[in-house]
Nucleic acid binder design. Structure first.
Length: 419
DNA sequence: TCTGGGGTCCTAGGACCC
DNA sequence: TCTGGGGTCCTAGGACCC
């Protein structure tokens, strides 16, 4: 059996941990640049605020109903996520974190008839210990466990935990479940199934295998098996990420080359730092920038450059140099760039790098320098020391008007709160 | 005027080889 | 003028996830 643990309205719940006065009030968390709604409290959902709604489109509702808005604060969410996950990890026989707020657990060390009450205890423990509300679904496949978790979240009577254990429970749960809400069924698949007259998860599960395979290919076929109770989807994560991205939308479009270059350098350094924490190196750097797709009044432009590195690396200096050279080749003056990003690709373990005997760069020296820079950052805070090509202040290009303090990670913020 | 960010997997089609 | 068949590898793009 699998148990799926899912944090309720995670980002909003994180903000409320430090603002208990917001319990019972409509609260939303916004995406980068305070653009869209990415997390909603139950009260905000009840007001009809849809997921992904642009803030400016719901401004009137937000003002009238006094909805509390937060800019996203990922160091806070990451920190609280770690606390929740470490408790879950400690109390399970196998643990796979699936996202910042979800994980799949094996609880085979607990007898079947006690698994539900065991999970109820976990829910209570996390609620009291960390302050985050969690729902758990238990079933024989991950997709069914996700279905169960949705019921656990929806009906307070379940006390946060719902099981799909018997065939009757499976049929009942799926017959009430909209096909588009099934894990793995996205917009396209839903449209195809609806056109074929299928609207519930049970109708889909009751089709012959060939139907699923033909209409939705392999992914849909796996989902079909899972809905019938067969464990078919493996989410075991690779020890290393295969690509690392940093990208941002700017508050107002930029055409200034040096400002854009500073952003590219920042993105690059941010990606590279992640590589180093997993002891890996990248073989390719991809740089892109483009105009706003929502602007119909200007000519659209998409700039992109892919660079294959002569020697794989995770060093800031080298990666920034390649990324900037690539950007300069593709940059077009006068274009209003709304978003830009850097992707490090073809990632391999650092230990797998074959040294180039004839190379001029002293790699050992580069590594020592990078380690020293990272140590300074660790001791004095992120971006305590940066390359001259990086932009020091982000306020000129991004908007975060509603950001909460860094309660859990930054001492200065805590002192400010006390004051 | 204002519309997020970071991933993975699958598939079709092209390049290339024998 | 006629012009095979089968395999692998790589890549770009689509679909999906949170």
């Amino acid at each position: 059996m699998f148990a799926l643990a899912d944090c309720n309205n995670f980002f909003v719940s994180c903000e409320r941990v430090f603002r208990p006065d917001l319990e019972g009030r409509p609260v939303v968390v916004l995406s980068g640049n305070d653009g869209c709604v990415v997390s909603r409290s139950n009260e905000a959902k009840a007001l009809g605020i849809p997921m992904g709604a642009p803030l400016y489109q719901i401004k009137e509702l937000v003002d009238r109903e006094r909805v509390v808005c937060f800019s996203s604060n990922f160091s806070l969410y990451g920190d609280l996520s770690d606390r929740v996950m470490s408790i879950l990890r400690k109390h399970t026989s196998r643990f796979e974190q699936y996202s910042i707020d979800e994980s799949f657990l094996n609880i085979d060390h607990v007898p079947a008839e006690q698994q539900k009450s065991y999970c109820e205890q976990l829910v209570r423990y996390i609620r009291v210990g960390v302050g985050i509300p969690v729902s758990i679904g238990i079933a024989s496949s991950k997709t069914l466990a996700k279905v169960a978790a949705k019921y656990a979240k929806k009906y307070p009577g379940y006390h946060g935990v719902c099981e799909i254990r018997t065939e009757q429970q499976r049929v009942k749960a799926l017959s009430d479940f909209e096909i588009g809400d099934v894990w793995g069924i996205g917009r396209k698949a839903k449209a195809k199934l609806t056109a074929a007259g299928i609207t519930t998860a049970l109708q889909f599960a009751d089709q012959p295998a060939a139907f699923a395979r033909k209409l939705l290919n392999k992914p849909g076929w796996l989902t079909w098996q899972e809905l019938r109770g067969v464990d078919a989807i493996d989410i075991t994560q690779l020890p290393m990420k295969q690509s690392v991205t940093t990208s941002r939308t700017f508050a107002t479009a930029l055409s200034d080359q040096s400002l854009l270059e500073q952003q590219i350098a920042n993105f690059c350094a941010h990606c590279a730092r992640q590589l180093r924490t997993q002891q890996s190196v990248a073989q390719q750097v991809y740089v892109y920038a483009h105009t706003s797709a929502f602007r119909t009044d200007i000519q659209q432009h998409y700039l992109s450059e892919l660079v294959t590195l002569p020697v794989p690396t995770s060093g800031d200096r080298e990666l920034i140099a390649y990324a900037l050279a690539a950007f300069r080749r593709a940059y077009r003056p006068g274009v209003l760039y709304k978003k830009a990003g850097v992707v490090l690709m073809k990632i391999i373990p650092e230990a797998a790098v074959v040294p180039d005997l004839f190379e001029a760069t002293d790699r050992d020296k580069e590594k020592r320098l990078q380690r020293a820079l990272d140590q300074i950052d660790d001791r004095h805070g992120r971006r305590a020391i940066i390359y001259g090509s990086q932009l020091l202040s982000d306020e000129r290009v991004y908007k975060t008007e509603h950001k909460s303090p860094l309660y859990t990670t930054d001492l200065r913020d805590i002192i400010t709160i006390k004051a």
